[in-house]
């Protein structure tokens, strides 16, 4: 149990800077999700915390002490890998107890700890099996077990669920979260799946091209995205972004006139989440629907605005549209997001 501090962490491979200064304070027991598209540096960041990559510049503190130069085993961390990385020739019990055996703990103590962890993860029946005799979900649990028995200060997860099928993923998501809460261990969790990020995180860090676009609670990021990138990355279907011009009387999008909640002037990017749109006969947005995707609880309507921009709306219930129907939509001003056209940063 410990705090983790990243102080302007940088990483270069040769002249190629892949992490361009990330700072983060993780509180004791907090669950932090690092989310971003592939190649954004999220795994590299995690591996630097683990000690598997050297830190080019900046300082990493675990539990308040500098950890830059420490070996992984001396950092009091445990890591769960994407492909589980179980030792194929060892039984489940041996896999889980390997780290403890290396530490030189007596056999009886190792066995007791492994049993306790197996109990917690419902693996007691499987302790004598080899990894190849286990299903994906069970292997994932063993990988978790291996992390738990070491009683680390920090859990590190590197896309641990991406090899599982969708249903199992939802289940394991809950299990990991419950377990982490029960044990109260600080956790860093890397994923490219924004649903995982939204559902699991106490706070999340949205990464893009080696930078932290935004650090905040999932709802923070959802409701007040700090940048166009964060806005579009979080939320499904992703946010509509259209060019607009802010004037005295409101936001002009082609011929359409929307409210201007921030009072921004000049060309801006306007972000509207599909699920925040409501049908309104006198609404300012005219959407020519080209395709309707009924999902049951709601319907996704894909189409074009009068100005030719691609646009998606998500409306509750079932909507059927015949051909190129024009739908009028409105949006509450407080649900509108305005971004600077040049920098992509949030305005207001």
């Amino acid at each position: 149990m410990a705090t983790v501090t990243l102080d302007n962490i940088r990483k270069s491979f040769g002249t190629d800077e892949v992490i361009k200064g990330v700072s983060l304070d993780v509180a004791d027991g907090e669950f932090i999700v690092i989310v971003g598209p592939s190649g954004c540096g999220k795994s590299t960041l995690l591996r630097m915390v683990a000690g598997l990559e050297t830190i080019t510049a900046g300082e990493l503190r675990i539990g308040g002490t500098r950890a830059n130069e420490r070996e992984p085993m001396d950092r009091d961390i445990a890591m769960v890998f994407q492909n589980y990385a179980l030792y194929p020739h060892m039984s489940v019990a041996q896999n889980m107890g390997y780290g403890l055996r290396i530490k030189g703990l007596p056999k009886a103590e190792v066995a007791a700890k492994v049993r306790a962890a197996a109990e917690l993860l419902q693996l007691s029946e499987l302790l004598e099996r080899k990894p190849r005799q286990l299903s994906g979900g069970q292997r994932q649990r063993v990988a978790m077990g291996r992390a738990i028995v070491r009683e680390p200060k920090v859990f590190l997860f590197d896309e641990p669920l991406s090899n599982l099928d969708a249903k199992l993923r939802v289940q394991m998501r809950l299990e990991i979260r419950e377990l982490q809460a029960k044990l109260g261990i600080t956790a860093l969790y890397v994923t490219h799946d924004q649903v995982e990020a939204m559902t699991m995180a106490d706070r999340m860090i949205v990464m893009n091209e080696g930078r932290a676009e935004q650090i905040g609670t999932p709802l923070d990021v959802y409701e007040r995205p700090a940048s166009l990138f964060a806005a579009q990355f979080i939320g499904s279907p992703s946010m509509n972004v259209i060019e607009a011009e802010g004037r005295e009387d409101g936001m002009h999008v082609g011929d359409m006139l929307l409210p201007n909640p921030t009072g921004a002037r000049g060309p801006v990017m306007l972000g509207l989440r599909p699920e925040h749109l409501v049908p309104a006969p006198d609404g300012p947005l005219a959407l020519r629907v080209l395709l309707a995707e009924p999902l049951g609880a709601n319907t996704l309507l894909h189409g074009m605005l009068a100005g030719g921009q691609n646009f998606t709306a998500s409306l509750p219930g079932v909507h059927t549209t015949g051909g190129a129907e024009v739908l009028h939509l409105g949006i509450a001003p407080e649900k509108m997001h305005v971004f600077d056209k040049q920098t992509g940063r949030r305005l207001g």
Binding site: G51, L52, P72, M73, Y98, G99, I102
Partner: peptide, 9 residues
Amino acid sequence: LAEAARVDG
């Protein structure tokens, strides 16, 4: 696998 072993010490 090598990395897991490193983390395991």
